[in-house]
Simulated scan of single mutants.
Amino acid sequence: MSLAAETREAVRAHPFVRDALRAGLVNHSAAATWLAEQADLDGDPDAIAAALRRFREDLPAYETEARTASVTMRSGVGVVDDAGDSDSAAGGGDSGAVAADPLLRVGDAAVVDGGDRTAILATGDVDTAVLADALGRLAAADVDVAAAGVAGDALVCVVPRRDGASAVRVVEAALEAVPVEEN
Results as ranks from 00 to 15, higher is better:
L3P: 02
L3F: 07
A5M: 10
E6D: 15
T7C: 14
E9N: 11
P15C: 08
F16R: 15
R18P: 06
R22G: 09
R22W: 05
A23G: 13
L35R: 04
A36E: 10
E37S: 14
Q38E: 15
L41F: 05
D42Y: 00
G43Q: 02
D44W: 04
P45N: 07
R54A: 15
F55Q: 08
E57Y: 02
E57N: 10
P60D: 02
P60R: 01
Y62E: 11
A69S: 05
S70P: 00
S70A: 13
R74G: 06
S75W: 00
D81S: 10
A83D: 14
G84M: 06
D87N: 11
G92S: 07
G93M: 01
G96W: 05
L103V: 08
L104H: 03
D108H: 11
V111N: 04
V112T: 15
L121N: 06
A122N: 06
G124P: 07
D127L: 03
D127E: 10
T128S: 14
L131P: 09
A132N: 13
G136S: 12
A146Q: 14
V150P: 08
G152N: 03
L155V: 02
C157N: 11
V170P: 03
E172L: 05
A173F: 02
A174G: 10
A177H: 11
A177K: 10
E182F: 11
N183Y: 13
